[in-house]
Design a protein around this nucleic acid. Structure first.
Lengths: 154, 154
DNA sequence: GAGATATCCGACCGAACTAGTCCATCTTAG
DNA sequence: CTAAGATGGACTAGTTCGGTCGGATATCTC
């Protein structure tokens, strides 16, 4: 029923968070996972895919973490989905992949491909920056308060 | 990755076929299954869902079969998908269903719901009649030739 | 240099869903 | 009555998805 995968949900939450907190530098996977109640290892996998998709940049080491690889306004929801879940397709077949038992007899391909293009357009029209604009930043961080990563944990 | 289910594919093929052959009266599930190489029992289930969704009308008994319940132009691709796969949703949550671990902390709901509306609009804008127009009918049936269901099989 | 804190990467597991099958029943034309 | 058709439920095999585990590597702090 056309549902987005959970990994995509997590990816969008994370990317939105990074966009809203771009000024704070790298954000660790652990902080993201705790903020949104996501299994840390699973989120880590998603973030790695986003790195491989050139949407995020990672920094290893003790103060490492993730940050957007480019401006949030130049990153669409479609980009995030494709980085996590692979190329988004509505039908089993595509221009180059004809692996479908009904391919030769199928006569609904073309209209469905047109629909797919419209869906991709809808997903491409919304940028991550728009997601981040939607609500106030979840951690307003009043002036003078150290960012989370500087605070000693018990 | 936003893929349509196979059942939906079959439903669209069937509905398109019925629209293109509306003048021939009821078409049996077997004929549809053979025409498009679909497992008959599976197609039967899909057709039943379409009947329950008031998109098709069925006639039982020998010489029975399926026909569109209303004009093909008044039946959208979205209607077919929803009848087969249930209400189409992009996110796990909706206006009434908040069953999602991240619901309280989620801040990407609203933009995603807007995207969902645009997808539904894209699916709703294409009618079954347009699908049927796309190509010549798969069985042109030259004048004088009896329809398939009248032909004796060996 | 040592240790702590990160990312990175591959293998693995269980649950859920999907596609497909089988079978038994009911309905109707001939 | 019988054959052809729809209807409906239970069942299975395969795949995907969400989640977990263990270890390797990089880098900062002390």
């Amino acid at each position: 029923m056309l549902r987005l995968s959970k990994k995509t949900d997590y990816a969008l939450l994370a990317v939105r968070h990074l966009a809203a907190n771009a000024d704070r530098g790298a954000v660790s996977a652990r902080e993201l996972a705790e903020t949104y109640d996501i299994p840390p290892e699973l989120l880590a996998k998603v973030l790695q895919k986003l790195v491989r998709g050139r949407l995020l940049e990672s920094q290893q080491g003790i103060r490492g973490g993730y940050a957007l690889a480019r401006a949030a306004s130049a990153m669409s929801v479609a980009d995030v989905i494709q980085a996590v879940d692979g190329p988004l397709m509505v039908t089993a077949c595509s221009e180059d992949d004809h692996s479908c038992d009904q391919y030769s007899k199928c006569n609904i391909r073309d209209p469905l491909w047109r629909i797919k293009d419209r869906i991709i357009a809808a997903l491409g029209a919304t940028s991550v920056a728009e997601l981040a604009m939607e609500m106030p930043a979840p951690l307003p961080l009043p002036a003078g308060v150290l960012p989370l990563q500087m605070v000693k944990r018990p």
